[in-house]
Design a protein around this nucleic acid. Sequence first.
DNA 1: ACCTGAACACCGTTCAAGT
DNA 2: ACCTGAACACCGTTCAAGT
Lengths: 193, 193
Amino acid sequence: MSREEILRAAARLVREEGPRALTMRRLAAELGTAVTAIYWHVGNREALLDALVERTLREFAAIHPTGRTPRTRIVSLARALRAELRARPHLIAMVHERGRTERLFRPVRQALVKEARAAGLRGARAAELVRAVEFLVVGSVLVERVSEGEPAGGAVVPGAGDRALERALARPPDPGRLFELSVRAVVEGLLGR
Amino acid sequence: MSREEILRAAARLVREEGPRALTMRRLAAELGTAVTAIYWHVGNREALLDALVERTLREFAAIHPTGRTPRTRIVSLARALRAELRARPHLIAMVHERGRTERLFRPVRQALVKEARAAGLRGARAAELVRAVEFLVVGSVLVERVSEGEPAGGAVVPGAGDRALERALARPPDPGRLFELSVRAVVEGLLGR
DNA sequence: ACCTGAACACCGTTCAAGT
DNA sequence: ACCTGAACACCGTTCAAGT
């Protein structure tokens, strides 16, 4: 049994059953070894989680913009970041709990900084745009998770008798479009000052 | 010892030391009773957390808009929601974990629906505005928590030689202003279509 | 170098027993 | 009605012992 095998099994447990399923004893059973063998390879549970988090950080460092204009490149970064966040909810939560969110966002933030400057923004103005895009990405991932995944997700919010509004709130027909709309609105709003 | 006393002590533990500090044994020690006495009053740990979550839901139901125009009322709702979320990070996380986020946001969402309609939006258009505001509120709370609270919070993201940009990204001089700026940008963008 | 089982201090929870 | 201590099955972790 190698360290790599352990990390793979641990990542699978977290992905499929959530972080609470990742107990040292469960992991050992999964791998068919004694619990204590795992300790020899990875130190302890904290160190194991650290290793999983490091993996995630590396994946987020590979995000790059596409498109020709700064506007489209900013939107593409937002879209890519959103996709990565949505793909690994549990691992992202672990990154956050361990205080590595700053590090997770750094590559995308740097890319956003570059594009904001390419669009002509400087200083605090550029920082505001970068932050606002991050707000929208993070917020959309969380809010959409709610309307998709929650038991009470079908609960209808009274839309003042407006059926189309109620439907669109309960389950947006195209969450991706809604997201891009918001990003474009905020990008246009902050670029066109 | 009353049920109310138990809830108060539990809420204090969560607020001051985080949810991991809330163990039944620790809570019993804090209250000077046997662990099992707590079980008589609240059932079990799950039920205790449920009760704390219900309290939080009630507090969020008391959020109301202020101001005269729909625009200012929408911004005031966003501001109030943000303040409540920031005041109870651990409890909010518990609400989220327990799948009650939909319920937590419902009162504010209803108020936002009303204002979006007062501003003249209907159907999917109104829903988009409501969602976008929620995105920004939730995103800003998380992203700002990161830049305020994380050990690596001081880590400077290269701003392409732009010192003012680097400063503003590392620690925005006025997070509240940055937030309102983003909200206004998205509200204007989605109202003026 | 790599793995094992026993043991320790922590959990949440149940239950029979007390007042 | 309210509280107690003992007991159970689970944790993470350490350590001496094996190969």
